[in-house]
């Protein structure tokens, strides 16, 4: 029972040994060291400015290509790339940044290399995306350089997002004219349709009815005028007296192959929303459309068509 030491001495010894152990681990494991520094507040939390090159250009790339495996869901290699602080903390082996750092090295490896990122045949970063990351790393991987000041950056290409729709909103927008539309769709089957499932706007394709469609039919559609945005009257029997100016929402109007003349111009002038007009094969003289042209309306088929 000799060699006993006091409890205090033992506690001190344990503290010392544990401390040395942690110090050794920090020295051997930069990732662990970074965590300890951040947890203990030895290192200030890093935050990137909202308009910084990092936030605007780099972070979306990490989100899209990396954060699935290096983020909240999983942190492979103990690396997370879903926040500026985490990016700076690095992974199991510490810092991944730097111009020749692990991050850039791994994302530029040939896809056949088993260490290449993203792995498993996931699409590699494009040349432009790599350029963005290279520029950011070369500038010290900072979070305070405004995006606008990085001149050599490739043009920003935003991924296409599928428009999401809210069926209740659409139904609400459609409700005021729904009964009228149902009635007219029965009378003109196949001619009137919503522009899309997400829209209350209508397109009317009277071309399908041909010569059976005339001024009176256009008049009949006027209750829907607030919602008709595209109107194709090609080859119909509409005349210069057609109630066109009542169609105040129409942006695209096709009159090809109708018997209309310059006399229809005032009615067209009244169509405030008009942006694109097609008059191929009509007798509408170019000069009668001068007003529309001044308004910036695109006009197809004036005078000679094609060539």
């Amino acid at each position: 029972m000799t060699g006993r030491i006091s409890a205090w001495a033992y506690a001190a010894g344990v503290l010392l040994v544990t401390g040395c152990g942690i110090a050794a681990a920090m020295a051997l494991r930069p990732g662990f060291a970074a965590t300890v520094r951040q947890v203990t507040g030895l290192e200030p939390a890093r935050i990137a400015a909202p308009d910084s090159f990092y936030t605007v250009r780099v972070a979306p790339l990490f989100d899209r290509h990396c954060a699935g495996c290096h983020g909240a869901r999983a942190a492979k290699g103990q690396l997370r790339l879903d926040s500026f602080a985490a990016v700076w903390r690095g992974g199991r082996h510490g810092d991944v940044l730097g111009k020749d750092g692990e991050l850039y090295r791994r994302i530029t490896l040939p896809q056949s290399d088993e260490k290449a990122m993203p792995p498993d045949g996931k699409p590699p970063l494009s040349k432009d995306e790599l350029t963005v990351i290279r520029l950011w790393l070369a500038d010290g991987a900072r979070g305070d350089v405004p995006a606008a000041t990085v001149k050599d950056a490739p043009r920003l290409v935003l991924p296409v997002t599928i428009p999401q729709m809210n069926p209740q909103d659409v139904a609400r927008q459609r409700a005021p004219l729904a009964d009228e539309l149902a009635r007219l769709q029965k009378r003109y089957p196949g001619l009137i349709a919503y522009e899309s499932l997400a829209s209350a706007d209508l397109q009317v394709n009277a071309m399908l009815a041909g010569k059976r469609f005339g001024d009176a039919d256009l008049q009949a559609l006027l209750p829907l005028a607030a919602r008709i945005v595209r109107l194709d009257l090609s080859g119909t029997a509409v005349t210069d007296a057609a109630p066109l100016s009542g169609l105040r929402a129409v942006t695209h109007l096709r009159l090809a192959g109708t018997g209309l003349t310059g006399a229809v111009a005032p009615a067209l002038d009244g169509m405030a929303a008009l942006k694109v007009l097609t008059v191929t094969g009509t007798n509408i003289a170019p000069e009668s459309l001068a007003g529309l042209r001044r308004r910036g309306v695109t006009i197809h088929g004036e005078g000679d068509d094609g060539a």
């Binding site: 196949g190 919503y194 499932l197 829209s199």
Partner: peptide, 24 residues
């Protein structure tokens, strides 16, 4: 996820127009 679309039509008019999900 991607929304579920309904392509059901009257069998007598299988080619009837269906508006696209968003503006084409």
């Amino acid at each position: 996820g991607p929304q579920t679309l309904n392509f059901a039509r009257d069998p007598a008019t299988p080619l009837s127009v269906l508006p696209p999900p968003f503006r084409a």
